[in-house]
Design a binder for these strands. Structure first.
Length: 283
DNA sequence: GCCCAGGAGTGTG
DNA sequence: CACACTCATGGG
């Protein structure tokens, strides 16, 4: 079925292609496709309109897509607040189309455990491998991401064969420790409590906990610090040190929308490295 | 072949 | 608490 919706100031290519999500790909026709709620969704942009198709099922595709793309975020307001930071203020307007994405909690947790010390193409391959081996087939070559029950059927040895490396045993263990109530309880926790609980899981440290908080549970104050962010903080703010220290710096500097600031900095730093343009620069 | 990757776990000072 | 080392492997 077809659908369309209106989202102010969104850049679909930027939002889906900047490495927040690992299950969305852009076809040769320029359309993006991925899976939400056990349905294959195809998206394309037409100005401020997002239009697309979805395989049948469930209810309200447009609501599902709107939530996924965080269409309710008031980017104007967010940027107005972040503009108080003089370093990102000059270029922040050009980041307006980059929205944080709202991923499924479980899929996000597993994906970011896999993401440790791997590059994005490889992460996409690993996540896709879990889906095609343990998920439900929806359409030609399209699978849902396996829920906890399905993924629990995989042993660490099975998973290692899929090329997950040392991450295989983490996935097995996370499946074992999470029950249906645990995940549900987390959705009602504050960011600090959520983070503390996530970090108890094997394979989940500071950075993964913050990514899952931000992209999976929608905690916009979360500021994940990976190698790119570390470089950006060093280059733009001359700030270095432990995760703790950098995290405190970001919380103080960016406050309740630190997650958006993080994504801006992340994308900017990567584009800079590829010499594809950079809107935040020293001085 | 080489270097690097949206790090985490463990042990040590 | 802060650092050093190890982990398993593929992508560019």
């Amino acid at each position: 079925m077809r659908f369309e919706l209106e989202i102010a100031s969104i850049d679909l290519d930027l939002t889906l292609g900047c490495g927040q999500t690992f299950r969305w790909g852009r076809g040769p026709d320029g359309n993006w496709s991925g899976v939400l709620d056990n349905r294959v969704i195809t998206l394309r942009q037409n100005g401020s309109r997002i239009e697309g198709e979805a395989t049948p099922g469930g209810k309200g595709v447009d609501e599902i897509v709107l939530e996924f793309l965080r269409g309710h975020d008031d980017v104007e307001k967010i940027q107005r607040k972040l503009r108080r930071d003089p370093v990102i203020a000059p270029g922040i307007g050009r980041m307006k189309g980059l929205r944080i994405v709202k991923l499924d909690e479980w899929e996000c947790l597993i994906s970011y455990v896999l993401a440790t010390y791997a590059n994005i193409p490889r992460i996409m391959k690993m996540v896709d491998s879990l889906a095609s081996n343990y998920g439900q087939r929806i359409a030609h070559g399209k699978y849902s991401f396996p829920d906890r029950i399905r993924l629990s059927k995989a042993t660490a040895k099975d998973l290692a064969k899929l090329g997950l490396g040392y991450r295989a045993k983490y996935i097995e263990e996370v499946c074992k420790r999470m029950d249906e109530f645990a995940l549900d309880a987390l959705t009602r926790a504050s960011y600090e409590d959520l983070r503390k609980d996530l970090i108890e899981l094997p394979g989940v440290g500071d950075k993964v906990a913050d990514c899952v908080s931000l992209f999976g549970f929608g905690k916009l104050e979360s500021f994940p610090i990976d190698l790119w962010i570390e470089r950006a903080l060093k280059r733009l703010y001359d700030k270095t040190g432990t995760y703790r220290r950098l995290r405190a710096f970001a919380a103080d500097r960016f406050g309740e929308y630190a997650g958006y600031a993080q994504e801006y900095l992340y994308h900017n730093e990567r584009m800079r490295a590829r010499d594809l343009g950079c809107v935040f620069s020293e001085e």
